[in-house]
Computed example of a mutant assay.
Amino acid sequence: MEGIGPSPGNAGAQQEQARQAAEKRENAQNSMLSQILEQDAMVRLNNLAAAKPDKAKMAEATIINMARRGQIAGKLSDEGLKQILNRVSDQSQSKTTVHFDRRRNAIDSDSD
């Protein structure tokens, strides 16, 4: 019955490998961003990552994709990063709408 299912030691090794792979990916992504962004833009992105990690990850992915497609020539300035952040923000904003159902209000008796 020992061959059924993963052994506890093997699962720990797999988790360690996955953690190392994720760390390696993150280091590669950070080095790529440092090559793409100017210093002030990198500071702004790091500040955003501290405040809103999800939005920063989306912006990082957008910047790296743009660089891979050749849409960024030279280093990206702080102003260029602001424009990208505005685009990411516009895409990720959810629109909230409120609908009033007046029929429910008919149950209340205001005439009392």
Rank of each mutant, 00 (worst) to 15 (best):
Q71F: 01
S89P: 05
L48V: 03
Q91L: 15
H99L: 14
T62I: 12
V88D: 00
L45W: 06
N105K: 02
I4H: 09
A50R: 15
A56H: 03
E38K: 00
S31C: 11
Q29V: 01
L48D: 09
N105S: 07
R103G: 10
A13C: 01
I84V: 03
D90I: 04
R44W: 05
N47L: 14
K57I: 05
E79N: 15
K52E: 13
G9T: 06
V43A: 08
R102V: 14
Q83M: 05
T96H: 12
S34R: 12
G80C: 08
A67C: 12
R25D: 12
V88S: 01
P53D: 06
R25S: 12
L33V: 09
P53S: 07
R19L: 04
D110N: 12
M1K: 10
N47H: 11
D78E: 13
S94P: 01
L85Q: 11
M58P: 02
G80V: 08
L48E: 12
I84A: 08
A50K: 15
R69A: 15
E23W: 04
L45K: 07
G5E: 09
N105A: 09
I4W: 02
E16K: 02
K24H: 13
N10P: 00
V88C: 11
D40M: 07
D101M: 04
R103M: 10
S94G: 07
R44E: 15
A22I: 03
R25W: 00
A13G: 00
Q93S: 08
A22Q: 10
R87E: 15
K55T: 08
E26Y: 04
L85N: 02
M1Y: 08
M66C: 04
Q91Y: 14
E60C: 10
D110Q: 09
M32P: 00
R25A: 15
M66Q: 09
D78Y: 12
Q39W: 05
L33P: 07
R68L: 07
R44K: 10
E23Q: 11
I63G: 03
Q15M: 04
D90E: 14
Q17N: 14
E16G: 00
N46W: 01
R44A: 14
I4C: 05
S111P: 00
Q39Y: 11
K57D: 03
S77M: 04
A67E: 01
N86H: 00
S92W: 04
A67I: 06
M66E: 02
P6C: 03
Q83A: 15
D112L: 12
A50I: 11
L81M: 10
E38T: 07
E79Q: 08
L48P: 05
Q29M: 03
M1G: 11
A21E: 15
Q17G: 06
L76D: 10
I64H: 08
